[in-house]
């Protein structure tokens, strides 16, 4: 077949930087919504090669794969585009639900010394390092959209947001960075 659809992510390539922070669109990624009871965690972790975090608001990063605790039986797995999470889990007999959501989300990177402040323009959580250290993650709100926030480093966050809310999230962060002074 001559035609092959290429992946066309929402607001690809957008970036805004000013002063203490920047926001940019992350490259396309593979994502899996993993749901499972605690009895299944060991088997799933083994199959994935990543120990699924069981502590609230924490994530594990192994290589280029992030495993984010979202709820007591829910994880978000993020890997490079094309990463085959489903394949890794195909043979796990323990009860779980693995659903591909690679295209459901887009991701924004918020970086710089003012990154937390920019997020706090709309995110009501305490993003001080003591309360939200590197590696911390949480589903929460930013302005009028739900996000999943992952702190990669003191001055770097990854914001996962549903695809159709990504332009709003980008515009919101741009405005927050622009209004920093």
């Amino acid at each position: 077949m001559a035609e092959t659809a290429s992946r066309l992510p929402v607001i690809a390539g957008a970036r805004y930087a000013k002063g203490r922070a920047s926001v940019s669109v992350a490259p396309p990624a593979a994502r899996l919504s993993l749901r499972a009871p605690s009895e299944s965690v060991a088997a799933l972790s083994k199959a994935l090669g990543v120990a699924l975090p069981e502590k609230p608001k924490t994530s594990i990063t192994k290589g280029d794969v992030h495993a984010l605790w979202l709820g007591p039986d829910e994880w978000l797995l993020i890997g490079p585009d094309g990463h085959d999470f489903a394949g890794a889990l195909a043979k796990v007999a323990a009860f779980h639900s693995a659903v591909d959501i690679s295209h459901r989300n887009a991701a924004l990177m918020v970086e710089g010394a003012g990154a937390a402040d920019a997020l706090n323009a709309g995110c009501p959580q305490d993003l001080n390092l003591s309360a939200f250290p590197a590696g911390a993650c949480s589903r929460t709100l930013m302005g009028k959209t739900e996000i999943v926030l992952l702190r990669l480093a003191e001055h770097a966050f990854r914001v996962e947001v549903w695809r159709s809310f990504a332009p709003y999230a980008f515009d919101f962060l741009e405005d927050a960075i622009k209004r920093d002074w």
């Binding site: 066309l8 323009a121 709309g122 159709s164 809310f165 332009p167 709003y168 919101f172 405005d175 209004r179």
Partner: peptide, 16 residues
């Protein structure tokens, strides 16, 4: 009102 003006008043959702 803060940031919630113009295009930030409400998210406008577009399909792919």
């Amino acid at each position: 009102v803060g940031h919630a003006r113009g295009k930030l008043f409400d998210p406008a959702r577009h399909t792919p």
